[in-house]
Lab assay of single mutants.
Amino acid sequence: NQASVVANQLIPISTALTLVMMRSEVVTPVGIPAEDIPRLVSMTVNRAVPLGTTLMPDMVKGYA
């Protein structure tokens, strides 16, 4: 089972991601792979991401 990136807090729309905002967790459905966390830092989300939500590729500008 692959770990995915999960929001560690509410991430408001257009917020630049930082390490403290994300954690890795094995979830269903599978989202962005946890090993991509370093790549996600400073990318922005294009929607509000509630606490505990799995980050999907279409939620992060420039990721997909």
Rank of each mutant, 00 (worst) to 15 (best):
Y63I: 04
T15V: 12
G62C: 11
S14I: 04
Q2N: 14
T28Q: 10
A48E: 15
A3T: 13
I11L: 09
E25Y: 08
N46A: 06
G31C: 03
I32F: 02
N1P: 15
Q9F: 09
A34I: 07
G62N: 11
V45R: 00
E35I: 10
G31Q: 03
I11S: 02
V26K: 06
T28M: 10
S42W: 10
P33S: 12
N8Y: 03
P29N: 04
T54A: 07
S24A: 14
P12Q: 10
V6S: 01
P38M: 12
A48Y: 14
A34Y: 07
P29C: 05
R23I: 09
A7G: 03
M43R: 07
I32N: 00
G31E: 02
A7E: 01
V45N: 02
V41P: 02
A3F: 09
M43I: 03
M59F: 14
L51A: 14
E25I: 05
Y63W: 14
P29M: 04
S4N: 02
P50D: 15
R39S: 12
V5Y: 02
L51S: 15
L10W: 12
T15W: 08
S14E: 13
L40A: 00
V45Y: 00
R39W: 15
E35H: 12
S14N: 15
N8E: 08
G31V: 02
L55T: 01
E35F: 08
S42F: 07
T28H: 09
M22Q: 00
K61C: 15
E35Q: 14
A64H: 14
M43Q: 07
T18E: 14
T54S: 04
V27P: 00
V6A: 02
M43K: 11
Q2S: 13
M59C: 05
R47G: 06
P12H: 08
Y63M: 05
V27S: 05
Y63H: 05
V5T: 08
R23P: 03
L17D: 03
N1V: 15
M56V: 08
T15S: 13
T15I: 08
L55D: 01
T44R: 13
A3R: 06
L19F: 15
A7I: 04
M22F: 05
T53H: 15
S14K: 11
A34T: 13
P50H: 10
A3E: 13
P50C: 08
I37A: 07
V45G: 01
P12T: 09
E25P: 00
G62F: 07
R39L: 10
I32W: 02
A7K: 00
M22C: 03
V27R: 09
V49A: 05
A7T: 12
V41Q: 06
M43A: 06
L17I: 08
R47F: 08
P57T: 05
G52L: 04
T15R: 07
G31D: 01
Q2Y: 09
V6T: 06
A16Q: 09
A64T: 15
G52H: 14
P57C: 07
A16W: 06
N1W: 08
V20N: 12
N8W: 03
D36S: 11
V5Q: 02
V20M: 14
V27Y: 02
G31I: 02
G52Q: 01
G62W: 07
P50R: 08
M21G: 02
I37Q: 04
S42D: 13
N8S: 14
I13W: 15
V6D: 01
M22Y: 02
I11H: 01
K61D: 14
V30C: 07
L19N: 07
G31P: 01
Y63K: 03
M56K: 09
T18H: 05
G31A: 03
D58G: 10
R23G: 11
V26N: 07
V41K: 04
R23S: 07
N46F: 06
S4R: 02
T18G: 05
M43E: 04
L19W: 11
E35M: 10
Q2T: 15
A34Q: 06
R47I: 13
A7Q: 00
L40M: 06
M21V: 03
N46C: 10
P33D: 05
I32C: 04
Y63V: 04
T53I: 10
V41I: 15
D36A: 11
G62Q: 09
Q2D: 15
K61F: 11
T44C: 08
P57Q: 07
P29F: 03
T15N: 04
T28A: 15
V27D: 01
M43W: 06
L10K: 11
V49G: 01
S24T: 13
V20L: 11
P33V: 08
A7Y: 03
L40D: 00
K61Q: 12
T28G: 06
